[in-house]
Design a protein around this nucleic acid. Structure first.
Lengths: 251, 251
DNA sequence: CGCTTAATTGACACGCCTCAATAAAGGTGG
DNA sequence: CCACCTTTATTGAGGCGTGTCAATTAAGCG
């Protein structure tokens, strides 16, 4: 990849001031209260958490943090979609995850964050200072256990993704991807068999270890095979979900 | 892949009784006491941990646990090497990690383990019942924090691996792999620039998302380029480590 | 030493990538 | 709401890196 390509790649996100609109948060009124790590907490816990939470907004394409930044904040996505990106020095990009409302953001850092986070759409986040959150753990073990469980889940998901990236064909990757999104939407109360894709095909390509052309061609092929049906520009139906599942070779 | 190939793939591990030789453990005398999550614990903590630890031995190629098994045990590798494997229904394999002495085994499970674990060499393990370990956390928060940190580290490593599998060339993958092993050996007190590979090339291929032929050819090429030098059948020197690092495109 | 497993190498195939052209969708300002 | 421009998606032609198949050599081990 040329130096120019790197410049181009880096120009694709808005690097304007990090500061985003923010306000104190009332967790009681939170739209995703029973989806995420704050789900099912008792009144006192919710109140304490509310005290250290800061509600933030990031516009589409804004950088939430860069790979390598000091990992002193963690977040909860309450609205919108976020992509987690890793870049090689020559500009190749790997997206290691997409976050949707209810997802937790900021784990996986050693010194700094292991990935950058960027808003795919306009995004609402609930931000916590890591040290304050850890302070809270002292009296709210439940919270700590839950975060540990989230880390464990993410680890399992990461390993599934390694199987996909290392061993699956383009068609299998797309099938797996669509099914995963569909399942996540169901967990969030959406209907099964319909997926909304907030990201562009370039993001999908960088998530699945493919090129945009291969993603486009494979989607076309899945349409021809009637395994998926495009309803709007970003929404798909999965009319033969069992066949799709078979194709995805879910372990 | 044919059904026969699946049979063959599955036949490669010894499925004989899980039971392995085991004995109570004295953590004070442990050879890896200051490498892993039991490092730097105070006397009382070591003693308590010792009380629930069970020392186990697995012969080369034995299965420690299968993907999907109830994840009620966690382990610490004290000697030998372990591979973590995921399989597709048609027999394709992805190795998601290699464990060496000091490494922790058993995280990343949701219901069951997200991967199977197999002994590459004869292996010594220190086993803990998960529920007992969690019980211990109540009075030894330090231990819990440490395990959480391990989960975080593994997550960061998994994301590096996704970048490798999704975006790196065969040559870059091998370079990255050798450098990673070299760094891990240094952490364990080994000398830099020399790596010992306990696994066969088929394992390396399944770890890097390649075939054995590509692994072999790429190693030959690295030798021709004098970036690596084979001293014994399983040991390599890395005489030009900076060039290798550049090739690996470490982010 | 002899057998089995692992590694190497060559010839060829194929899936995905690259490059290029065009079409479609999305955003903006009047 | 439309015209214009930019971004995104689609599709084709051709190339390349890695996979597949096959033969041979080397290493491991009883």
């Amino acid at each position: 990849m040329t130096t120019k390509a790197v410049e181009l790649a880096k120009a694709k996100v808005k690097l304007t001031p990090r500061r985003a609109s923010c306000a104190a948060q009332d967790c009681h009124a939170c739209e995703i209260r029973d989806l995420t790590f704050c789900a099912g907490l008792d009144e006192s816990e919710i109140a304490t958490l509310s005290g250290i939470a800061l509600r933030m907004h990031f516009a589409k394409r804004r950088v939430i943090f860069h790979e390598g930044d000091a990992a002193d904040m963690v977040y909860n996505v309450t609205q919108g979609a976020v992509r987690l990106c890793k870049l090689t020095p020559d500009g190749r990009r790997q997206i290691t995850g997409f976050l949707l409302p209810g997802d937790f953001l900021g784990l996986g850092g050693r010194q700094g964050y292991a990935y950058g986070a960027e808003a795919i759409t306009d995004v609402e986040l609930c931000r916590f200072r890591r040290d304050k959150l850890e302070k809270l753990f002292e009296n709210h073990r439940q919270l700590e256990r839950r975060l540990f469980k989230i880390a464990n889940d993410e680890l399992a998901i990461a390993q599934d993704q390694m199987l996909l990236l290392g061993r699956k064909t383009a068609k299998e990757r797309l099938a797996t991807f669509l099914l995963n999104l569909s399942e996540r939407e169901e967990l969030r109360g959406g209907q099964g068999g319909v997926v909304y894709l907030p990201m562009v095909q370039e993001d999908i390509a960088d998530y699945l270890g493919l090129t945009i052309e291969t993603v486009s061609r494979t989607i076309s092929q899945l349409k021809r095979d009637r395994l998926i049906h495009q309803t709007t520009s970003h929404e798909f139906e999965l009319p033969r979900i069992e066949e799709l599942r078979h194709l995805a070779e879910q372990t």
